Lab assay of single mutants.
Amino acid sequence: MGSVRTNRYSIVSSEEDGMKLATMAVANGFGNGKSKVHTRQQCRSRFVKKDGHCNVQFINVGEKGQRYLADIFTTCVDIRWRWMLVIFCLAFVLSWLFFGCVFWLIALLHGDLDTDYKDDDDKSKVSKACVSEVNSFTAAFLFSIETQTTIGYGFRCVTDECPIAVFMVVFQSIVGCIIDAFIIGAVMAKMAKPKKRNETLVFSHNAVIAMRDGKLCLMWRVGNLRKSHLVEAHVRAQLLKSRITSEGEYIPLDQIDINVGFDSGIDRIFLVSPITIVHEIDEDSPLYDLSKQDIDNADFEIVVILEGMVEATAMTTQCRSSYLANEILWGHRYEPVLFEEKHYYKVDYSRFHKTYEVPNTPLCSARDLAEKKYILSNANSFCYENEVALTSKEEEEDSENGVPESTSTDSPPGIDLHNQASVPLEPRPLRRESEIGSRR
């Protein structure tokens, strides 16, 4: 089982795998120059863009038009607004034209077009017409509009002379109601789609790998820009990579689940303020055997998904993003964004995407760390350097704002901070800030 798991979770494809794949392509008759073999020097295209759209195009789909027309309502909801407006206008105009032609044909076959009612006051002739005051196609078209929109100006009306005319008036009224219901329903469904809710759900630009509770963890940050909550919010993550099976089958995008606390339930989050999602790199993680150097040379993509129900409509929305291997910062942490004021908490989104480097973060893999092949620094050293990194950030910001350097908390000259780390230190809580992250 261990060997199978290692093969499945191998992220960085070796040169031997690339040569094996190329040999397979030639042997199977696919070596026509169009096949692409992804190596370390040639990274694959992003499968999920940063804005959440999937970078996929469908080609050679059989009976595409028929399949889309069979699900016309979903098609109308998914198309762009400009095409929705075109369909909206065409549906009414074509129905008016169709029934206008029908009423014109009825008048033509009944002989109503030969009668001039402007110079004739004989009401008996008017009563013999199928539709009064309809003696041309324009008049028939206007009567069709008046019937379907129930305008009723009063000059044109159907008589009991022709039952077919009466039937067409009733039929057009029913068709008009159906068109109204369909168009209004599609427009309302399109307006109520929770897709735009994703514009106020954000992911951090970069993911980070750092120590948390004595273990290497992959972390990324999510935030909600609205005050309205995302009900039943939960997160998922998958690692996408290519691999070759033991039988020699090439899988271009193998999807591997990344555990973010599904078993323990901590994948469900209360997204009021930005939260750091934590994936513990343990023996079940696809990143277990990867060191910093392996991450730098790897070719994979981590897709992160945030799902929840919109509070206003109770409709489920899904926000997506992805991180390539070069977008994962090893040995970094996110800057705090949640600050405790006197009577409330304040979230500073200008710090949302910012990170700071944490010294002495192990550069080895989580496996080597678990097997004690890498000796961690003293816990006080880690905490102290973590505090120094934050303090230096604040000093830089104070210097930019014009604060005198004498007010900063610099260490005395001639003292090495790293050498001082081995000395037991008193706890130094942050002056006014605390970061709330997901705790395992």
Rank of each mutant, 00 (worst) to 15 (best):
I251F: 15
C162D: 01
E400S: 11
G176T: 03
V272D: 14
L290V: 02
K372H: 13
C364G: 07
T276K: 03
E63H: 14
I436R: 10
T276E: 12
G111E: 04
E311V: 08
A325S: 09
L239V: 12
L240Q: 04
M84T: 04
Y153R: 07
S3N: 06
V388I: 14
V187M: 04
S124E: 03
M309P: 10
D51P: 04
H418K: 12
S13M: 08
C364N: 02
S144W: 00
S10N: 08
V158R: 03
H205D: 15
A189E: 03
M168Q: 01
V166G: 00
L21S: 13
P412V: 08
V169Y: 08
G265V: 10
F98W: 01
Q238V: 13
K64C: 13
A366E: 00
P413I: 13
I106C: 05
V208Q: 02
A192Y: 08
Y9G: 15
S14V: 13
E400T: 14
E199M: 10
Y153I: 03
F98K: 00
V126R: 02
A237I: 01
K393I: 06
A189V: 15
E232I: 10
H53C: 09
T150L: 02
M19I: 13
S365Q: 01
S10V: 05
V93K: 04
M315L: 09
D257V: 07
M19A: 09
F30W: 07
E280A: 12
R226G: 13
G261M: 08
H205E: 15
F171Y: 04
G214T: 15
K393C: 10
G176F: 02
T150I: 03
S246T: 11
H279G: 00
I305A: 08
F103S: 02
K373F: 05
W220L: 04
R212M: 04
I295P: 00
T39A: 09
F171R: 00
M168Y: 03
F171D: 00
A298R: 03
E435M: 13
C383Y: 08
Y374L: 10
L69G: 11
T245L: 06
S242D: 13
N297H: 13
P286K: 00
I179A: 05
W96K: 00
S13A: 12
I328V: 12
L240Y: 07
Q148D: 01
R428V: 15
A107I: 03
F382V: 14
A107E: 03
A181V: 15
E400H: 10
H53K: 05
A389S: 05
A421H: 13
V126Y: 05
R226P: 10
L290C: 11
S14E: 10
A314G: 12
S365C: 10
T407A: 05
N259T: 10
H38Q: 13
T317L: 09
F88K: 01
T75L: 04
E283G: 12
D114M: 13
G331Q: 02
E146S: 03
E387W: 00
H353Y: 03
I184P: 05
G265D: 03
I305F: 11
D17K: 07
A140E: 00
Y323P: 00
V158E: 02
C177I: 15
V158W: 04
V37N: 09
Q420R: 07
I145K: 01
P362Q: 00
S35H: 09
E199I: 05
Y250P: 15
F88H: 08
K227V: 11
G111D: 07
L271N: 08
S322I: 01
S321I: 12
R333Q: 15
F143W: 03
G248K: 13
N224I: 07
P427C: 10
G2N: 05
C130K: 02
C130Y: 02
L425V: 09
V26R: 12
D114W: 06
L425Y: 14
D120A: 00
T39G: 11
V278T: 06
Y384L: 15
G29Y: 03
V222L: 10
D257Q: 09
K227Y: 09
I295K: 03
F270C: 09
A325H: 11
G223A: 10
H353T: 02
N135L: 04
S434H: 12
V358K: 00
F270G: 04
V310H: 11
M315P: 11
F300Y: 00
E280F: 09
L21D: 12
S365G: 02
K354W: 05
V235A: 09
Q255T: 10
D267P: 06
F171E: 01
C101D: 00
C101A: 09
K50I: 01
D116A: 15
R82C: 04
G414N: 11
P336Y: 10
G402V: 04
E16Y: 07
I275K: 06
Y349Q: 12
P359A: 13
L363H: 11
D294W: 01
R82Q: 09
K372P: 12
L216W: 01
V37K: 14
K125V: 15
C89T: 07
L290R: 02
G223C: 10
T39N: 12
D121C: 01
D284Y: 12
I145Q: 03
L290P: 02
H418C: 09
W104G: 04
V337Q: 00
G308E: 06
L85H: 06
I275L: 11
P274T: 09
V222H: 01
S285I: 00
V235T: 05
D114N: 06
L430F: 11
Y349K: 07
D78Q: 15
S127V: 15
